[in-house]
């Protein structure tokens, strides 16, 4: 279960109500901008390799905009906003900009994206609507899709730090590939 693997005992934790998860994530409900460094490992189990990347994540609540900026292995700036994804890659003369509509990503891709946006915005209401949430440890929560067939993820786990910021996210895809994202100290306005 990756770096966040939880024991069977932990998994049978207490279910959370909408109010309780709202309270846990309250810090994200009132901010206007969030900036945080991340380190991500995508474990492609089917291929037997791991993709490591580092970068910055920015959330601008008012514009409902998310910026996922990868610095390594190669600069890549992804801006997610309503219905589209803008990808800037390369530098200098080799810089390329690609704008993808949600529909371009296909049904499955669009679902992935929608699910991910809900996650990265840490919208407690949306998350509660989509997942059954259990508390499986100290500041540790597990999320199981209410409609598994519609979710790209089989299971998710979230670890908050003492101040209530997301410290670690673990996403297990239906394909058995998994993503672990570790966040640094956030800058909040």
């Amino acid at each position: 279960m990756g770096q966040m693997g939880a024991s069977a005992k932990e998994l049978s934790g207490q279910p959370l109500t909408r109010e309780e998860i709202g309270k846990q994530l309250s810090i994200y409900q009132h901010l206007s901008t969030l900036k945080v460094n991340f380190k991500q490992i995508k474990d492609l189990s089917s291929i037997g390799t791991k993709l490591e990347s580092t970068g910055k994540f920015t959330l601008i609540q008012a514009q409902k905009k998310l910026i996922w900026e990868i610095e390594k292995p190669s600069p890549l700036l992804v801006t997610l906003s309503e219905g589209e994804m803008r990808i800037e890659s390369g530098q200098g003369k080799e810089k390329q900009i690609q704008i993808l509509k949600m529909s371009d990503a296909g049904e499955q891709g669009a679902q992935n994206l929608a699910a991910l946006i809900a996650w990265l915005r840490l919208d407690a209401n949306a998350l509660f609507g989509q997942y059954t949430i259990l508390k499986i440890g100290e500041q540790k929560f597990s999320f199981t899709p209410r409609e598994p067939a519609k979710s790209p993820f089989q299971k998710l786990e979230m670890q908050l730090d003492k101040s209530g910021h997301v410290q670690k996210l673990f996403l297990l895809e239906r394909s058995k590939d998994s993503i672990t994202i570790e966040f640094g100290k956030p800058l909040i306005r």
């Binding site: 995508k42 490591e52 990868i70 292995p73 890659s89 990503a105 499955q108 992935n112 394909s175």
Partner: peptide, 10 residues
């Protein structure tokens, strides 16, 4: 590889 590492890449 960077694009493949995006969480949205299924």
């Amino acid at each position: 590889l960077a694009e493949a590492s995006l969480p949205a890449a299924n």
